[in-house]
Design a protein around this nucleic acid. Structure first.
Lengths: 223, 223
DNA sequence: TCTTTTTTCAAACGGTCGTTTAAATATTTC
DNA sequence: GAAATATTTAAACGACCGTTTGAAAAAAGA
């Protein structure tokens, strides 16, 4: 251990950062299987063995990348929900406000790196379809707690609602959000080339409306 | 060529059918990369070279499986839409009726093979996230024409609507449908073990309500 | 029956995968 | 400066990948 907490080598930390950044791009565009040690090493302009030196295994490397990407977004989601709660003097929130807190932080991240090939929602969405068992754990770790927070908030807004109604429609809401962002090809088709940051901003507003309305309509449904 | 159009060997056709069935299971649970020639051959109780004999390449085999699974569902979707159209004397359909025609045929397929490991929506959903270029073609081939049919029908129901409104909310509807079915883990969490055919039937009703309401609310949205 | 065609099979091809090794190089510590 | 530590490197490991080969086995046609 050193007292400076700095890398031992001039570009030591930089190498690790480059590896994570490369992992991110490859995972976003080709999934877990598309992240190859040789590919990452080459794109990050380093040697294949240094990947193992910094992370141990491929799985650990992808895991660390996911943590670094999803963690901050979930933090913002909680903050935004708490802020809305505070602004409403702790009264129950409108449905749209709850889903705004859930969706906006992702949307902002998408907007930031939209032209980029490493779309955050591609990453999240891929995590949901990856079969690997270690990703299942990630889901539970990252989305389990967060889901509970938002479901609890929805229960406050709908105190008399059937619990099944809330669970199912929350499930649909998540699915809409992930699917809406993830399916790049269709977004580009829909915007017909004028797929820029404004288009994403528009999509986010539309999405919040879609999800909130669908959720509200699903409360007290007659089956 | 033979006049009987029957297999030359007692279990010849059966072998090909077993291979397709195995491909289906592996693709549903592990994606394109998870379909390995050796895995398929072993599970189908045949030799690896016979895979190549029947299909030529792995890609061709997966493609044939996808065609056999998605084709009939799309056929049912069109039939159901045409039937609803006929029952309404060619008047514009309610939003929910249009989405029922889109969702029910998938739902029925899910219900049929739910306990099965080869969930049809897993297959469709995976097709949407697979990066392989040949799958992109499948999407356009299978979903391009179908999408247009349903969008045209929605335009009849909303003759004064902004076209962007229709496209975006249709995009959300598709995303909801695929995501809702595909994310198995959350469905099982939500139903807490009582995840049987009844639960799926309930989910489909809920999903149609969610999607229709979200879509309706998204028309003439103020951005 | 014998011939022809269809189907299966064991074995091998070259290639890529994640991981490991051990030596070389850079950086920090003393 | 020298010693200790941190990092990078080339090379190789065994395992699995999709595909191909050529011959055996089964079925069909004559």
């Amino acid at each position: 251990m050193d007292s400076t907490c700095m890398p031992k080598r001039a570009n030591g930390q930089k190498t690790k950062a480059r590896l994570l950044s490369t992992t991110e791009k490859l995972f976003a565009s080709h999934g877990f299987a598309g992240v190859t040690m040789r590919g990452v090493a080459t794109m990050a302009q380093t040697n294949i063995a240094s990947v193992n030196y910094h992370f141990g295994t491929k799985e650990a490397m992808v895991l660390e990348m996911l943590k670094s990407k999803i963690g901050p977004i979930n933090k913002k989601r909680k903050e935004r929900l708490a802020e809305a709660k505070h602004n409403s003097c702790n009264n129950p929130l409108p449905t749209s406000e709850i889903f705004r807190a859930l969706i906006l932080p992702v949307g902002e991240e998408v907007q930031k790196h939209f032209s980029n090939q490493s779309n955050i929602v591609n990453i999240i969405s891929r995590s949901f379809t990856e079969p690997a068992s270690f990703l299942e754990k990630i889901h539970k770790h990252f989305f389990g707690e967060l889901s509970q927070i938002f479901i609890d908030e929805l229960k406050l807004t709908y105190p008399d609602a059937n619990e099944d109604d809330i669970y199912w429609n929350f499930h649909f809401a998540i699915a809409s959000m992930l699917g809406a962002f993830a399916q790049h090809r269709r977004i580009k088709d829909l915007t017909q080339g004028r797929c820029n940051e404004n288009a994403i901003s528009e999509m986010i507003k539309r999405l919040i409306k879609f999800v909130s309305s669908g959720f509200e309509a699903g409360m007290n449904i007659k089956l």
